[in-house]
């Protein structure tokens, strides 16, 4: 994680778990580095956006930037001007949580000139249990379309194959197979393999990519 470039862009098919990954990433990075900013660029989803957790994250010292419109009930694609701050200011360690699908990635286009090779990483999150990214070809098609809209290249893959709390090691390994194929075909590294803390312990240590144990911040306790 410390080897990732200063600007980390999290993209993927909607529902792949980008936001959960982004929030966990921010919390972890915040333990290692100063000045962590999480930018919520989601203009697709009306619910479960990282800005909903801005109070908790702010307490940890993470700067969260959401919509310029106050109130959770806005389904207006309004992005705050202050988003530019942590993108331009090199003293920030910046995470961009982007809305799902090519449509969500369109919001990135406006910041394109800041995404210079070696200065940013764009991670593509894959959940092989999502119907639209269950096969290698479909996942690649999504990835390509997102690159097109974002006008930036993906630099790494994240295997986030899960079925929420009922995720088993086998589910993750099944996803890993697909992510590996995508990795080979596109010559992109698998950067992270995401798993709930308990399941993460069971994963083979030599798995390709860094094992990334997470907590579920976005899902309320009562949802189980």
């Amino acid at each position: 994680m410390l080897n990732d470039n200063r600007i980390r862009i999290i993209t993927g098919h909607y529902g792949s778990g980008k936001t959960e990954f982004a929030v966990n990433y921010a919390v972890k990075l915040n333990k290692e580095k100063e000045n962590v900013a999480l930018v919520d660029l989601d203009v697709v989803n009306p619910y479960f956006r990282s800005r909903e957790k801005s109070n908790d994250l702010s307490k940890l010292g993470i700067k969260v930037i959401g919509s310029s419109i106050k109130g959770m009930g806005a389904d207006v694609p309004a992005i705050a001007g202050e988003v530019l701050g942590p993108i331009q200011d090199e003293s920030f360690e910046t995470i961009l949580d982007v809305g799902g699908d090519p449509i969500g990635a369109r919001a990135l286009g406006r910041y394109n000139k800041y995404f210079k090779d070696g200065k940013y990483d764009m991670l593509f999150v894959i959940n092989a249990n999502r119907p639209e990214t269950q096969t290698v070809d479909k996942a690649i098609e999504y990835l390509k379309n997102i690159e097109l809209q974002a006008r930036a290249k993906v630099t790494g893959l994240v295997n986030n194959t899960h079925l929420l709390k009922s995720t088993t090691k086998e589910e993750i390994l099944k996803g890993q197979k697909i992510v590996k194929e995508v990795s080979k075909k596109l010559n992109l590294p698998i950067r992270y393999v995401v798993a709930l803390e308990d399941v993460a312990k069971e994963l083979p240590k030599d798995i390709e990519g860094e094992i990334f144990p997470i907590k579920m911040y976005m899902r309320e306790d009562w949802m189980y």
Partner: peptide, 9 residues
């Protein structure tokens, strides 16, 4: 097999 879906989908 089970798939992960959003309610509306």
């Amino acid at each position: 097999a089970k798939v992960l879906m959003k309610g509306n989908e």
